[in-house]
């Protein structure tokens, strides 16, 4: 059992760039999402039926969710939150199809967390301006400054570690279970560890990111 990801192949430039399974699975997820979104948005009717209904429900839910929390800024951040949500739900549950989840790799989760924090900073600057953003470090009192700086680091750390820890714990427990009892029992446990926990961690990640953005634009 290894924490790191195995290298699938190496791109022979700049002294060899290793491409890990995380990256390959991410590409697979990207391909799935791109093809699915191209197929699903084709030939829409005014009266929704079948797949259109499903997609509309999801995107409408995302839009109203972000609208409630972010107010007038929802349109700029709903696509990002939606992208993260779709990526994470596939990445967390792809273990069901026998692929290694990319979120089992701390590199991927920390990339996600740092992107989320960058988006939060962008939101803050967009809402308050550069000056207002700089000022927000000294509010409500000047001696809050070190805490705010610390916050800048603990937030992405906890985001990344939470996602990574949950997914790798589920992965390791699933591995242990299937080593002890190879049939039937792993399937039952995988409903909880892969499906439920994966969906829950997606919700938590998106929800926390949105909460940080909400706090930033207020």
């Amino acid at each position: 059992m290894e924490i790191g990801q195995s290298v699938v192949f190496t791109i022979p430039i700049l002294g060899g760039i290793p491409v890990t399974t995380t990256v390959v699975v991410t590409w697979i997820i990207m391909a799935i999402l791109t093809i699915a979104s191209l197929i699903v948005t084709r030939g829409w009717n005014l009266v929704p039926t079948g797949a259109q209904n499903f997609v509309e429900t999801i995107i409408d839910g995302l839009n109203s969710f972000t609208k409630d929390a972010l107010g007038e800024y929802w349109a700029s951040f709903a696509p990002y939150l939606g992208t993260v949500a779709l990526y994470l739900i596939l990445a967390n549950t792809i273990d069901l199809f026998g692929l290694t989840p990319p979120t089992k790799d701390l590199s991927a989760t920390s990339a996600l967390a740092i992107m989320s924090i960058i988006v939060v900073i962008i939101a803050s600057i967009k809402a308050k301006g550069l000056k207002g953003y700089a000022k927000s470090f000294f509010e409500p009192m000047p001696f809050f400054f070190p805490m705010k700086i610390l916050d800048m680091f603990t937030r992405p750390l906890s985001l990344a570690a939470r996602l990574f820890g949950n997914i790798i714990a589920a992965f390791i427990i699933m591995g242990l279970i299937s080593k002890v009892v190879p049939i039937v029992v792993p399937a039952i446990f995988s409903i909880y560890f892969d499906l439920f926990d994966g969906a829950l961690q997606m919700v938590v990640f998106v929800f926390l990111t949105m909460l940080y953005i909400e706090e930033a634009v207020e």
């Binding site: 790191g4 990801q5 760039i17 290793p18 491409v19 890990t20 995380t22 990256v23 991410t26 990319p102 790799d105 701390l106 590199s107 991927a108 920390s110 990339a111 996600l112």
Partner: peptide
């Protein structure tokens, strides 16, 4: 953390 994977992601 693999920096290449990080950047790729």
């Amino acid at each position: 953390i693999n920096p290449y994977t990080f950047i790729f992601t």
